[in-house]
Structures are given as C-alpha cells and as structure tokens.
Design a protein around this nucleic acid. Structure first.
Lengths: 153, 153
DNA sequence: TATTGTTATACTCTATAACTATA
DNA sequence: TATAGTTATAGAGTATAACAATA
C-alpha cells in the first residue's frame, strides 16, 4: 500500500490519506456510473435524476436547486421545464416573496426516483457483500463524513 | 432509522439496506460535486477529468473509454480530440490491430489529475475526521465493495 | 461479415451576459 | 439597488444512425 512500514502480513499498515482518497474516488465514480446508467434506462438523464432525488428530500427554489447541482441558476429553468413537462415536478409561487418559485417533486417524481434506486442492482449487490455488523460500521462512518462532505468547497 | 427494533440508545439497530443505500447515494453525490467543482476550477469538465483519471490508471482504446464513462463510443472522439488538443492525452495506433487507437495520458495529463485530487479540500476535510483505525476499517470495507461495484449493471 | 473509430444530427447540460419582475 | 427567475447564445456531453478502414 505505502511500504513505509514493515508489519506482518495479517496486520497491514494504516492506509495513507492518498490511498483512501483514491479508493473513495473509485467507489464514488463507480456508484455514479450505476446511478447514471440506471437513470438512463428509466428515461432520465443523470442530472434530471439527481435533481429529482434532491427535490424528493425537500422542495427548493430554483437557486437552491442550482446550488445542489453545482451549476449556474440559468440552467435550472430548462431542467425544471423538462421535468415539469413530464409531470415529475411542480412549480409553486413563493408565499412571502413572489419572485421565488418553489419546485417540488410530484408523486410521479417520487415514484420515478424510488424506481431508479430500487433498480441499482450493482450497488445493491456490492452492499450485499457486507455482514450486518459491517453495514453498521460503514453506515456510522459515512454518517460522520456526510455533513462535512456536503459543505461547499 | 428503521424503528423495527427497540434497543438501547447506545446500541442503535442495524441500518436497513435502504438506509445504507440512501447514505451511500448522499456520499456519492457529495463526492462527485466536490470532484466536478474542483475540476471546473482547473479548467476541466467533470467528464474530461473523469476520462483523464481513468487514463492515468491505464491506457485504453476508444471503446474502452466509452465503457468506463458509460456512454456511446461516438462521444469519445470529440472528448479525446479536446483533451489531445490541450496536450493531456495522446493517441497511439494499436500494434496488433490497426483499427484500434490506444489513448494514454501524457505527463501533463497526469499532473492535471494529481492537481485536481490534491485540491479536493472538502473530501480531504471529511476524511480528516477519521482516526487511523477508522480509516483502516473504511479502506478495507471500500476495497471489498469496489470490485463488485465496478462491474457493469 | 463483424468490429473500430469517425462523422452527422439532434437534444441536453453548462456558463456568461442581458433582461423582467419583485423586493 | 439588489435579488429571483428567465432568455439568448455558445461550447460541451449524449444517443442514434450511417460510414470508411481493417479484421
């Protein structure tokens, strides 16, 4: 792995942060590929599916969607247009500020993202490799990482 | 979490697979956002950076790149054209089969992807939260998941 | 005949800049 | 004047279909 320490074969050295980053990158890319491929089979681009997944968690104004997608706000108009045409999301005028439009996933939108997640067989198969105890450990570690990882860079 | 078992507060129930999938999705998306944002700062689109990361690991024929990127082979022509124009990759004619063009990252390409990885501060900060022992555990779990997760769906 | 890479076309994603409606 | 959303435009990513070169 890093070769800086000579330990026994049964107790490998602690991985360097670079090792972990590389593994994290590979896992992140592989997950995203499964997500994009399954979304495509369901007639959604990866961006449409990602937007839908975000909106299922909570309704957001146009600019909030842009933040979540890390893209310019101008793109969100067309993106939401296409999702709205297919009945997957709904625009609602903001109550306090009429400039704001709140976008929410419809029932059809929620069903679509549920179907995509259920169909991510590669990811399911990978997680099936773990025992209950390992799943608990992984879940706990990821839950710790998530708040920091979701901050803006 | 799932509420199906009533255990003590210090020993939470084993997360369901759905819980873990959701956490995995959130982590995967957050990682990808950091990657895309940093790549953009370095003048690369996320697809260009991903292709470069793949080619740093190993040279690939055009169709191999398409497989890794989960996209049609016809797209790869333009993608590699743009990377080649900037001196980040190089096309080489295959030795055994002259139809095949092997694409390899140049030194500049390797340097570019190294710079992107080093600049992913959000991901670095997240991983800094873990102790050496936790890093080892996470690394081992991810290493187990990776071969299955990298298979085609 | 089958396969590799390319080209042509059309649609989607993306950023920048300018515009409108509202605050 | 500042902000939320939109429109216009141009470059990049994407799939489908058709093509040339090679196997």
């Amino acid at each position: 792995m890093n070769g800086t320490t000579a330990q026994s074969a049964t107790a490998p050295a602690v991985p360097t942060k670079a090792d972990l980053i590389e593994e994290f990158a590979a896992i992140g890319n592989a997950y995203y590929q499964d997500f994009a491929a399954v979304a495509a089979r369901h007639g959604l681009t990866s961006v449409q599916a990602k937007a839908l997944a975000v909106l299922v968690r909570q309704p957001l104004p146009m600019r909030g969607i842009a933040e979540q997608l890390v893209c310019d706000a101008s793109n969100v108009t067309g993106l939401v247009d296409r999702l709205e045409t297919r009945g997957l999301v709904r625009r609602e005028v903001g109550a306090s500020d009429r400039r704001i439009k709140i976008v929410a996933a419809t029932e059809a939108g929620e069903a679509a993202i549920r179907a995509v997640r259920a169909d991510m067989q590669t990811t399911h198969q990978a997680l099936d490799l773990l025992s209950d105890g390992e799943r608990s450990v992984l879940f706990e570690l990821l839950t710790r990482l998530r708040p920091v990882l979701e901050q803006k860079s």
